[in-house]
């Protein structure tokens, strides 16, 4: 399974990014190969509009199965996420990526 995180950096110790559409990085953790890879999403900061749907599309193309994030996508982005079938877990905003993963494993995050 590919787990995606919205993060402010590219490592396990990076802080989570509470934002969805304008998150700085998308981290992908494959729990079979145990590899953590990153996608630079910082271009979204320059989008006047539609950062949410675009980031959702990026997630789909990164083949994520589940997303772990802070506030969760809203409006248009939520509509795209629904199409992608990616599960969304929120409430991991004030954590590091590692802490967010642990919280996810313990079932502490809220599934939207």
């Amino acid at each position: 399974m590919n787990l995606a995180f919205t993060a402010k950096g590219t490592t396990w110790d990076s802080n989570m990014d509470t934002r969805f559409g304008r998150t700085e990085y998308l981290l992908i953790y494959n729990d079979i190969s145990k590899e953590l890879s990153s996608y630079d999403n910082r271009e979204s900061a320059n989008y006047a509009h539609g950062a949410g749907p675009k980031t959702a599309q990026n997630l789909f193309e990164l083949k994520a199965d589940a997303l772990i994030t802070g506030n969760g996508p809203g409006g248009n982005a939520a509509a795209v996420m629904e199409k992608t079938g990616i599960d969304i877990y929120i409430g991991a905003g004030a954590k590091t990526v590692k802490e967010a993963y642990e919280a996810f494993q313990k079932g502490e995050l809220i599934k939207v």
Partner: peptide
């Protein structure tokens, strides 16, 4: 300028992060 709401979003997000 195009008051796209993006500047508004920026101001709010910035405030949110500080508050957090």
């Amino acid at each position: 300028a195009d008051n796209s709401g993006k500047l508004v979003a920026k101001v709010k997000n910035e405030a949110k992060e500080i508050a957090n």
